[in-house]
Amino acid sequence: MIRLDPRTKLFLLLSVVLYTAFSETGIKDCAVIGFVTITGMLLGEFRKSIIPALIWFFLYFFALFGLPHIEGVIHTSLLAWLALIFKCYPCCMLAGIIIHSTQISEFMAGMAKMKIPRTIVIPLAVMFRYFPVVKEDWSYIRDAMALRGLRPTPLGFIKNPSAVIDALYVPMLVSASKTADELSLAAVTRGIETPRPRTSRLKIRFGSADIIILISYLGLIIFGIMG
């Protein structure tokens, strides 16, 4: 299992994005998927590599050999749907591997090292931190609505639209507003306004694995776009 610098991972992702943007969907994508699968295995993400790879090849096989036998509206819808899936697949797959193999703190440290301004870094960090909160809030709001005889379903909406709207939006946004206030006070009192660049407890450093992978991907992308 190898370790990759988070900046390398970001570059890998960007190169695959560039590739999918500038090349035709086709057999070359299979090579890219293979590349991504190997990358994932090297990072130790077996489930996130093998399973998506298998699904890709199943879909690809179906697109080439199954789809032509289907007729009419279904054929057309599947064409569009699969087109979008195939276009996004390499990026999504690699993203899944990267997200699962990288800690948020590593990622933030990488961003700090890349000198990304705090106007981007702080909102991003807060986004990661707030996602789980929304889940929690949502379960409380569901409970609260049930206690008042309201349901967050289309039917419940029709029965009492303004109450359902209020019950959904107000607590969620009041909670968001309060959290923003309290969190900023806590962050300020811990020195976040410092003009000096923030350091990290993690050491982010390029290694030989990074260089090899970077070069391989660069090669892949050039070949993919040109060839």
Binding site: Q103, I104, A125, T179, E182, L183, A186, A187, R190, R201
Partner: peptide, 11 residues
């Protein structure tokens, strides 16, 4: 709930 800036304890 609203005091911590990160998602893991070490950070």
């Amino acid at each position: 709930r609203t005091q911590f800036f990160n998602t893991d304890t070490d950070s």
